[in-house]
């Protein structure tokens, strides 16, 4: 086809610019496939220029060309390029660094009110179940599922209960135990977060129920004079785990609250602002639960001295509190 074979203005328009579009298309193909290093310096410099040229072509094509294939092609190419040119520009390692240095602690601090409410609900549950079970041990199974309780019930003897605290399960299946605990707890935490969507109520119930179970166990061991060793058994990982679950509840509350009472923003806007903040927090919660799983699976089975268990618990409490709420240099 010769140049003279092109009859219409819109055809000449296309033939003059087609090479740029094709070049942008091939660069995008490489970038989308993650082959960033195959781009030369010239390509990198050319990319935004090609993008603007294509956008301008699209704008012109819409007004002068009736070739639908051409307009569709330019629309799709411009959209692909837009997402790339205006997409995230930070590298993955930078993002991870900023997550740990700033975003995660900042999200935790921003949700301090919700965290306090979730912690309060959990504590309330624990207190209620503790006193009710202490007065009448038969209530234990109201709060704790039989399967979860295992051998630890109101009828168990002191010796049996002591064994559950200090038994090391051998040291064979610790890794499996740790990973099971982690995945189980992370799933519960994610659920607590997601349930916040329904006006906070299911999250509130879950947090409260978690406290109830804790209180019932505490009462059981306390009534056998095992309160202090049980505290060590629980807190060595519990500081991390309970904190993580409280944070997950707080994230759920923030979303439910934003949806119910969006304030001056639109409901959608409020929900997505809350969601992004809570999303950052939840990524951190999953990490905390991984730490808790390791402490529970390995730490608790390997450290059997109550004093040492309390020491580890105190240490984790200080580390988390310092990391999240400690003063930091203003940027």
């Amino acid at each position: 086809m010769t140049q003279t074979g092109l009859i219409l203005k819109s055809q000449r328009f296309r033939s003059e610019r087609e090479a740029d579009w094709k070049r942008l298309e091939s660069l995008l193909g490489l970038l989308e496939a993650g082959k960033r290093n195959q781009l030369s310096d010239d390509d990198v410099i050319a990319l935004p220029l090609l993008y603007r040229a294509t956008l301008s072509s699209l704008s012109i094509a819409r007004t002068i060309s009736l070739d639908r294939n051409l307009v569709d092609y330019l629309e799709s190419l411009s959209t692909r390029a837009y997402f790339f040119v205006y997409g995230t520009r930070t590298r993955l390692d930078e993002r991870i660094l900023s997550f740990f240095l700033r975003d995660w602690p900042a999200a935790v601090r921003a949700l301090w009110r919700e965290t306090a409410i979730a912690a309060g609900l959990g504590a309330m549950g624990a207190l209620v179940a503790f006193f009710v079970t202490l007065r009448n041990p038969a209530y234990f199974y109201v709060f704790v599922d039989r399967a979860l309780a295992g051998g630890r019930g109101p009828r168990a003897s002191t010796a049996e209960l002591t064994r559950t605290i200090f038994d090391t399960h051998g040291d064979k299946a610790l890794g499996f135990f740790a990973s099971f605990l982690f995945t189980h707890n992370a799933q519960i935490a994610l659920l607590a977060f997601a349930l916040g969507f329904a006006c906070c109520l299911p999250t509130a119930f879950l947090t409260f129920y978690n406290g109830l179970m804790l209180g019932a166990f505490l009462a059981l061991f306390y009534s056998h004079g095992l309160g202090v060793p049980f505290g060590g058994w629980l807190l060595i990982h519990g500081v991390t785990e309970l904190f993580a679950i409280t944070l997950a509840g707080a994230a759920g509350f923030r979303i439910g609250w934003a949806l119910a009472f969006p304030g001056s923003k639109s409901r959608l806007e409020a929900a997505s602002d809350a969601g992004r903040l809570a999303g950052t927090l939840m990524a951190g919660v999953v990490l905390m639960l991984a730490v808790a799983g390791l402490l529970e699976g390995y730490g608790r089975q390997l450290v059997t001295s109550t004093a040492l268990r309390y020491a580890v618990a105190l240490l984790t409490a200080l580390v988390w509190a310092g990391y999240f709420y400690g003063p930091r240099r203003p940027r």
Partner: peptide
């Protein structure tokens, strides 16, 4: 098809995390 932010801003990891954590509620529950 692809995911994009509603306001045309860059798609951030926390938005993706939040959008997918909700699957717990929508599918697994």
């Amino acid at each position: 098809i692809r995911v994009a932010t509603r306001d045309g801003s860059p798609l951030t990891p926390n938005a993706i995390f939040a959008r997918n954590a909700m699957r717990e509620l929508e599918i697994f529950l």
